[in-house]
C-alpha cells in the first residue's frame, strides 16, 4: 500500500492522479528503447558531421553531385506527389462515394505499395517500364526510338524515378483523404444546393476547402516518403552520376566507397528534411482541426 502511495507522487506533480499501474515501467522502457534506437544513433550522426570543419561539410553538401541529386530527389518527388494528389483524390472519392462491383477489392489493393517490399516493387517496375516490358514497349513504340533515347525512356531514366515514387506515394494520399471524406457531412452539400449552388460550385467552394488540409497532408506525406525512398527507385533509375542519382543513392555509394564523413553530411541534410516534413504535417493537422471543427486527431 505504501508503495502505491509513494509511486503516485511523481505524476501528481503533473496534475494527473490515477490509480492505473505501470507508469514508471512503461515510460521507462519506452524512453530507454527510443534513446538507444533513435536518439543516440542520430546524435552520433550529427556529432560526426560537427567534428569536421564547417567549411568542409558545406563543400560536401553543396557539391555539384549533391545538388544534382537534391534536384532529382525533390523534383521527382514533387511531381509524384502532384500526380498522386490528382489520382489519389479521385480514388478516395470513388471509394467513399460510389458503389460499384469490386469496390472492397480496389480498396484493399490501394495498400499494395505499403505491403510490397520496396526491392520487389523496384525490380518489377524496372521490367514493366523497361524497353521490353509491357508498358515500356508501348511508350517506346509511341514516341519512337530516338525520342526514347533522348529522354522519354520510362526506365533507366528520371521519368522512371518519378514513376517509382508515384507508386510508393499513392496510399498516403488515399488513406489520408478517405476518413475526411467519410466524415464530411452531406448536410453542407445539401445546404449549398438549396442556396442555389450547382454541383460544380459546391465541389470547389464547399468540399475542396473542407478537405484541403487533409489533401495537402496526404501529398506532403507522399512527398516526404518519396524523398527518402531507396529500394523501389534504384532499379529503375539510371544512376548516372550528376544526372540520375537520387540523394539516398549518393549516400549509399559514398558509404560503399568508405567516404563516411561525406555520407554523414548528406545524411544530416536528409534528417533535417525529415524533421521539416514532421513539422509541416503537424501544422497541417492543426489547420485540419480548425477547418473540420473537431479538436480530435
Amino acid at each position: 500500500m505504501s508503495d502505491a502511495v509513494s509511486s503516485s507522487i511523481p505524476y501528481r506533480r503533473f496534475g494527473n492522479r490515477t490509480i492505473l499501474p505501470g507508469f514508471h515501467l512503461s515510460l521507462g522502457y519506452t524512453l530507454i528503447y527510443v534513446s538507444l534506437l533513435v536518439l543516440i544513433p542520430m546524435a552520433f550522426l550529427v556529432a560526426k558531421v560537427f567534428t569536421e570543419p564547417f567549411a568542409a561539410t558545406w563543400a560536401k553538401i553543396t557539391s555539384d553531385r549533391a545538388i544534382a541529386s537534391y534536384m532529382l530527389s525533390f523534383g521527382a518527388s514533387g511531381i509524384a506527389a502532384l500526380i498522386n494528389g490528382v489520382f489519389g483524390f479521385i480514388i478516395a472519392w470513388v471509394l467513399v462515394r460510389y458503389e460499384f462491383p469490386g469496390r472492397r477489392f480496389a480498396d484493399a489493393v490501394v495498400d499494395l505499395p505499403f505491403a510490397l517490399p520496396t526491392a520487389v516493387a523496384g525490380i518489377s517496375l524496372a521490367v514493366l517500364y523497361g524497353k521490353n516490358g509491357t508498358f515500356g514497349e508501348w511508350v517506346h513504340w509511341a514516341v519512337g526510338p530516338e525520342a526514347w533515347r533522348a529522354g522519354w525512356a520510362t526506365a533507366n531514366s528520371n521519368i522512371g524515378v518519378t514513376i517509382a515514387l508515384t507508386f510508393i506515394g499513392l496510399p498516403f494520399v488515399v488513406r489520408t483523404l478517405q476518413p475526411v471524406l467519410e466524415d464530411l457531412s452531406t448536410d453542407i452539400e445539401e445546404a449549398a444546393a438549396c442556396l442555389g449552388a450547382t454541383r460544380w460550385q459546391t465541389f470547389w467552394r464547399i468540399i475542396v476547402p473542407a478537405i484541403l488540409p487533409a489533401w495537402l497532408t496526404g501529398m506532403t506525406l507522399a512527398f516526404g516518403r518519396a524523398v527518402g525512398e531507396f529500394g523501389s527507385v534504384i532499379f529503375i533509375a539510371s544512376g548516372v552520376i550528376g544526372r540520375g542519382e537520387i540523394t539516398p543513392l549518393v549516400i549509399y555509394t559514398t558509404l560503399e566507397e568508405g567516404l563516411y564523413s561525406q555520407a554523414a553530411a548528406l545524411g544530416a541534410v536528409m534528417l533535417v528534411f525529415s524533421f521539416l516534413i514532421l513539422v509541416v504535417v503537424s501544422l497541417l493537422q492543426a489547420w485540419n482541426g480548425r477547418v473540420t471543427g473537431s479538436a480530435s486527431v
Binding site: 544513433p41 552520433f44 550522426l45 527518402g228 539516398p248 549516400i251 563516411y260
Partner: peptide, 23 residues
C-alpha cells in the same frame, strides 16, 4: 520519426555509430 527517415540514412546512422570511423 523512423517512418520519415530515409532507410539509407537509418542504415548510415548505425554504420557511423558502430563503424571504425565513428566516435
Amino acid at each position: 520519426l523512423p517512418l520519415w527517415v530515409s532507410p539509407i540514412v537509418a542504415g548510415l546512422m548505425f554504420v557511423i555509430l558502430f563503424g571504425r570511423q565513428g566516435l
